[in-house]
Amino acid sequence: MGVRPSDRAGDTLLRGLCATAAVAVIAVMVDIAYQVLHGSHQALSKFGLGFLVHTTWRPNFDVFGAGSFLYGTIVSSLMALLIATPLAIAIALYLSLMAPRGVRSIVGSLVEMLAAVPSVVIGFWGILVLSPFVRDHLEPWLHGAFGFIPLFGPPQTTGSSTFTAGLILTIMVIPIIASVSRDLFDTVPQELQDGAAALGATRWEIVRGVILPSTASGVAAAAFLGLGRALGEAIAVTQVIGAGTGIHASLFATGDTLASRVANEFAGATSTLHTAAIFYAAAILLVIGLSTNLFAQWIGRRFDPSRLVAR
């Protein structure tokens, strides 16, 4: 019995359509990289890698350096990661191991809801609620207690600061790290946990001795995903960081990040070199974003739940 010609045509058509769509996805990804690099060409040839370290950004004089933005990006994201990772792991442990059934699904959904709040809304809330609170309470207190550390310098009057941006980013990456970590903790076989419990271990000892070590690489990957998100967040950061220039030791000074600067220049570029400089900043973001993502995947691949179980 032969295949009907209409069926053969249908199969070819469907496969062709699907393959085209798949190729389109790859093409878009490649084209994004191309466009961004291409757009930055003029700035790249003029400033070279010095763009990464020079801290002057003066569109009116056609002088561009993204050093302070790069610094602000790294500082705010690292701060977010340092606060968010332990909190997110704690949340994931609660959800995976401690929470009663009903609570688990409700709290789990709520934490994921936090990820769904648009960044522009979080940023707006940051301007009107978080910034004043940080300025009036958190920063003075930290300055008073730890002022001898340069990081905690005198608070600024506006409340816009790298510190506030770091807190906003913390809120944004917690749900990402928490939900990935929770899924990881769920993969730790019950038999391993039972084995530890049967040795007279407390819940925390089971977590520290069995659950965290067996999922460590996966959790690290989750943290890197969070880092990628924090590095690339533009809108919410723009709203609260204060668009400062220069590199300051104090977290309480205003600052700027690459993504935030790019978003800020939407009103229009003053010259083609200005446009190219914006693209250059985006190109750095692209490279950082792609490499954190690839790195997260690479570590993540080293985590294989089946390795945890004896054969």
């Binding site: 996805v25 961004v36 985006a282 974003g289 993502n293």
Partner: peptide
Amino acid sequence: IRLALDLLNGLPSIVVGLFVFG
């Protein structure tokens, strides 16, 4: 294809905006 999807998903959305801008 999976890689491209993952990378697209992890791309900062401001970069996507700038790409379409260009």
